[in-house]
Design a protein around this nucleic acid. Structure first.
Length: 218
DNA sequence: AAGTGATCATAA
DNA sequence: TTATGATCACTT
């Protein structure tokens, strides 16, 4: 059931349609994967499984999942009301060199400019194997949306580039936010302080708030 | 209940 | 250690 990369957008959408309504158990069966019993051990399981099923092939490169199509794949868990249950991780942040990017050339924008959203049931009242895959949405930010995303990115990038990392918390940004993205509290990387010195700090990533993703998916 | 900060799995 | 895939769990 392992698929090769889809050659076109239409083929990718057809593959999504083919797994619409699949339960995670069906997904696991088709891919011969085991679903971990422990919830903490299955973080990311759905995303990885769906990637395999749709033929994503970018591995762990800092590029969209379907690089040749310019499309990023995101599963998004919905609660019983149909609203996003979690924020959405977009990309890791190279703290030392982020300021060399511009919004349009940024890895953040390269992922946000075209996203294939795949809603999945995230209600914990539903046993994990019974949760189902929903209808895919191929999305591109509107001019208005992109303006706000760019504004958030510019503000956060300026702070990171000028050594104000310590002042950044998840409350900055209207749609985009910056939060830790680490294996644990001791996995550190380099950032800049206000004098331009390298300092050890937690790795960070850009995330989309649920108030924004909710307006896309609902 | 929501939102932020912390954490888990895997690959190269 | 970097990146990918995210969700857990504690604070507010």
């Amino acid at each position: 059931m392992l698929l090769s990369r889809p050659d076109s957008e239409l083929e990718l959408l057809a593959r999504c349609k083919a797994i619409e309504g699949f339960s995670f158990a069906q997904l696991a069966s088709a891919l011969q994967l085991i679903i971990p019993e422990n919830p903490v051990q299955r973080k990311g399981w759905t995303g990885q499984a769906v990637e395999q099923m749709l033929g994503a092939n970018s591995g762990n490169l800092a590029q969209p999942d379907f690089h040749h199509l310019g499309i990023e794949l995101k599963t998004i868990p919905l609660n019983h009301l149909g609203n996003p249950k979690e924020s959405t991780f977009i990309t890791s942040i190279p703290l030392l060199t982020l300021h060399k990017q511009t919004w349009k050339t940024s890895q953040c924008f390269s992922k946000l400019k075209k996203i294939l959203w795949l809603p999945v049931e995230g209600d914990t009242a539903i046993a994990f194997p019974h949760r189902r895959i929903g209808r895919a949405i191929l999305w591109t930010p509107s001019v208005e949306e992109e303006a706000i995303l760019a504004c958030d990115w510019n503000e956060l990038t300026l702070m990171i580039g000028t050594g104000k990392l310590a002042e950044i918390d998840a409350t900055f940004g209207q749609y985009l936010q910056v939060r830790p993205k680490a294996a644990h509290a001791k996995s550190l990387c380099y950032g800049l302080d206000e004098e331009g010195n390298k300092i050890l700090t937690l790795p960070r990533g850009f995330y989309l708030r649920t108030c924004f993703t909710g307006s896309i998916v609902c």
